[in-house]
Amino acid sequence: MQRQFRKNILTLVFCLFVGSVFGQKSNNKDTLRVLFVGNSYTYFWNLPQMVETMARSNDYAMIARKSTAGGTNWKQHWEGDKGLKSRSIIEDGNWDVVVLQNHSKSTINDLEQFMEYGDKLIELVKSTGARPVLYETWARSFNPLMIDQIKSGYHELAEKHKLDVVHVGEIWSMALDQRADLRLYDPDDSHPSTIGTYLTACAFYSYLTGKSAHGLEERISKTDGDGELLYLSIMSGNDAEFMQDVVDHFQTRGK
């Protein structure tokens, strides 16, 4: 009985020690905590994990998480549709940055709703001490001119609240202007392909870290809980270098 009691005490002490270590790691003030709030334009091909892995591979401590559901807009995030708990996740997550991505046609189909629920989410994020950032999405492949209304809506909201925008849609347009062969789109002509997600990840990496995208690996990998290597993205060297250059060029030319 006494041996079992001592064993239980030692187990408890070990668990408390491990919990303390991991708790310190997750709350490390040197680690940038980023939450992505959006839909499939965010979760396709694991964008948050790709950004985090790019950062960590370049000695920049980052934790990136997401609150997403397919086809959703900011109103649905606010009202908790589709089982979303974005508001409580924002309030309880101790985030440094919250990235807000609305439905891809939200600025076109209902700009008033875009502004109304953008206002609500931005004020909620600010109330927690985190920094809200807008994720400007891209035009559908069949109508590149959509980017004008998308850009206008995000810029209007950003100017109203004095926020930063990660200009993903404009970066996509620039890349396609230079290389129409670049297959940024999924076959549905809307969602990102693995190449499109890599370009988007380069843009977020550059914005969040303040570093050049130049020199990022063309193969983005991490290990799973069993120590097995997982490849989040595999690009050709030429495509990766081109996309990194597009991001850097866009960042330096001025918006």
Rank of each mutant, 00 (worst) to 15 (best):
D110M: 12
S221Y: 15
K151Q: 11
A158P: 11
A130S: 14
F36V: 05
T137F: 08
M62P: 00
H155Y: 13
L230D: 01
D119L: 15
L163Q: 04
L111I: 12
I234L: 12
L134V: 11
Q101E: 13
H155M: 13
L12W: 15
E241Q: 15
E79S: 06
V247F: 03
S104L: 07
T42K: 05
R3A: 09
D30E: 14
R65A: 03
Q4G: 00
A64Q: 02
R87M: 04
V99Y: 00
R33I: 08
G196S: 00
L100K: 07
L32R: 00
N46I: 01
F22G: 02
V51Q: 04
R183V: 08
T53L: 04
V99D: 01
W172S: 01
C202W: 09
V125D: 01
L229A: 00
D239E: 15
N238K: 15
K25T: 04
S57T: 09
D110V: 13
H167Q: 15
T31S: 04
I108E: 06
I108Y: 05
V166L: 03
L124E: 08
S26G: 03
T223K: 07
S236G: 03
K255P: 02
I171M: 08
E136P: 02
V168I: 12
S212H: 12
G169T: 13
R6W: 12
D186L: 06
S57N: 15
H191D: 03
L35Y: 01
N143L: 13
T252W: 01
N143A: 14
Y135Q: 10
M146S: 05
Y154W: 08
